[in-house]
């Protein structure tokens, strides 16, 4: 899909330059375009540095292609920019090192993250990649909350943790893929052990 034909998503109408506010255009890896206000971009350290380095004027924003964000899809990026627009102008939190870290999830964020966990997973990756501290905080808090009061067996299901046996099997499969002789050698070793041999060699 060409850039001209790509759907343009206005994340926040207020961000459109009614009063000559500066905004930027971004494009996801599935060619969805977003207009995001300069103030909202400041929530992302990565994007903020990027636009600073590019030094675009308002004309450049209109005339040049949208800034491509190659590894985030449109659905995820829409959530990211919605979050940034809602929290624009807010101070970036500084980690004071307290443990456990106290993070409250505001109502807007809770609603924004009321999504399936596949999308939440992508949102966390995006927040990490774009270095959006507070979005990462609230999304991590949501993941941390999933563990609350769960037994180890429940945690294996919630966090899709492989059991020891599955990990062993995966390790063996990886070894075999690397060296097809590995399984034969292992079987030979087991056979010799059964026959009472002390040493493989």
């Amino acid at each position: 899909m060409s850039v001209e034909n790509a759907p343009v998503v206005d994340v926040d109408e207020a961000a459109i330059p009614v009063e000559k506010k500066m905004y930027y255009r971004f494009e996801s890896n599935d060619k969805k375009e977003f207009r995001v206000s300069e103030l909202a971009i400041q929530q992302s350290e990565t994007l903020n540095r990027l636009v600073e380095a590019m030094g675009y004027t308002s004309e450049d924003v209109e005339n040049k292609p949208a800034i491509a964000i190659e590894n985030i899809d449109g659905k995820t990026l829409k959530l990211v920019f919605q979050w940034c627009e809602h929290h624009k102008g807010e101070a970036i939190p500084v980690d004071d090192g307290s443990v456990p870290k106290i993070v409250e999830i505001p109502e807007f964020d809770a609603k924004l993250m009321d999504i399936d966990n596949g999308l939440l997973f992508k949102l966390i990756w995006a927040a990490d990649y774009l270095n959006i501290v507070q979005l990462l905080n609230v999304s991590c808090k949501k993941v941390a909350n999933m563990a609350q009061g769960k037994t180890p067996a429940q945690l294996r299901r919630v966090y899709l943790l492989p059991s020891d046996e599955e990990d062993e099997a995966a390790k063996r499969a990886a070894q075999e893929a690397q060296d097809p002789r590995a399984r034969e050698v292992e079987e030979e070793f087991e056979e010799r052990k059964r026959q009472g041999g002390n040493s493989f060699f």
Partner: peptide, 17 residues
């Protein structure tokens, strides 16, 4: 860093990994 210590301990008990 946001989990309670006991949730972390239970997580550690989920598997060797």
């Amino acid at each position: 860093s946001m989990m309670s210590l006991f949730d972390i301990i239970r997580l550690a008990r989920a598997s060797k990994r």
